[in-house]
Structure formats: structure tokens, C-alpha cells
Design a protein around this nucleic acid. Structure first.
Length: 154
DNA sequence: GCCAACGTTGGC
DNA sequence: GCCAACGTTGGC
């Protein structure tokens, strides 16, 4: 099975790369977008690479590397009335929302900012930098993955 | 805090 | 099924 690559967004005030480094494995819950869910369900395989992206913060950008640590399972927060992610329309027999486990791999030696990513023509087709993109889980091509990782040491 | 871009909801 | 209204995301 060929390894695939992904990018997931997280608001560092909610859950940062440092928080992931501390817990090592985190259930990635609260995804409430069908396209993002389908990427997790139909695309993600254990061991796939993940670019960990900080959004909604002073310097949005890629800050670390993680990996897919489980296949999808029903997101428990959809059934939790006290959760912000509670979905009264979702039934236990037929869960609408799914989660995966994300495992920490390493922090990048520096943040590769969104502004920097936008500067490179090689990444012009990358979903993240396309106008209007709001996906919190998206696929990354091998070529884009390699290019971004190479930027780290420049 | 503003607001563009999108997704979702619900009336019809 | 259409589409206006509304809510959310997330950069700036």
C-alpha cells in the first residue's frame, strides 16, 4: 500500500503541535465537513504522513509532522450533549462523523508560513493556497510534500 | 474586528 | 430543487 500524505489544520490555542508532542497520540475529533470526513474515511491509511498546520493564529503555517495512527472510528463528540461538536441528528447506529488517531512524529525546525508557501510557484496547485479553501483535512501530493519538507532547511 | 468565501438550512 | 439567509472558517 502506497503511503499517502495529508495536511490537517488545528488552531494552536485549541490544540497545538506542542500539545500533540506531549500526548503523542490524539483522537482527531470535531471534523464536521463531509469532504474532510470522506478524505479520512476513504483515503487515510495507518502510517500516512500528515503535515500539521496551525491556523487562525499570528503566523499560520506548517509547524510539524504527524502520522495517521488508526483507521476511522465514530467521533464520540457527536453523541456528547455537552460537547461543542454535539450533533443531535447523528444516530449511534449510523454515525455521521468520524475521527482518526493522529500520532506525533516531530516538530519542524521552523514554521513554514502560509505566506512562504504562497510564494512558491511549485505549490500553486496545492489546495491549501487555493483561494477560498476552508478544508481542515486535505490530501497533499508526494511532490508537494517533498517540496515543503525541503523548504524546512532553507 | 473585518470580511470574503463557502457550506448549510429551510421556506416555498 | 431553488435560492436567500445565515453561520463558519480563517487570513489579514
Amino acid at each position: 500500500m502506497t503511503k499517502r500524505y495529508w495536511l490537517i489544520k488545528s488552531e494552536p490555542e485549541e490544540f497545538s503541535i506542542d500539545a500533540l508532542a506531549k500526548v503523542k497520540v490524539e483522537p482527531w475529533t470535531g471534523i464536521r465537513n463531509y469532504q474532510a470526513r470522506n478524505f479520512m474515511r476513504d483515503g487515510m491509511q495507518i502510517g500516512d504522513g500528515i503535515l500539521f498546520y496551525h491556523s487562525n493564529c499570528p503566523e499560520p503555517g506548517v509547524v510539524g509532522i504527524a502520522e495517521v495512527a488508526s483507521t476511522t472510528f465514530p467521533d464520540p463528540t457527536q453523541f456528547d450533549k455537552r460537547s461543542d461538536y454535539y450533533d443531535p441528528a447523528s444516530k449511534r447506529e449510523e454515525p455521521r462523523w468520524l475521527a482518526i488517531d493522529v500520532r506525533y512524529v516531530r516538530k519542524l525546525v521552523r514554521t513554514i508560513s502560509l505566506a512562504e508557501l504562497k510564494d512558491h510557484d511549485e505549490l500553486s496547485e496545492f489546495t491549501l493556497v487555493r483561494r477560498g479553501n476552508r478544508l481542515s483535512v486535505m490530501p497533499v501530493t508526494r511532490a508537494h510534500w517533498d517540496f515543503i519538507i525541503d523548504l524546512e532547511m532553507q
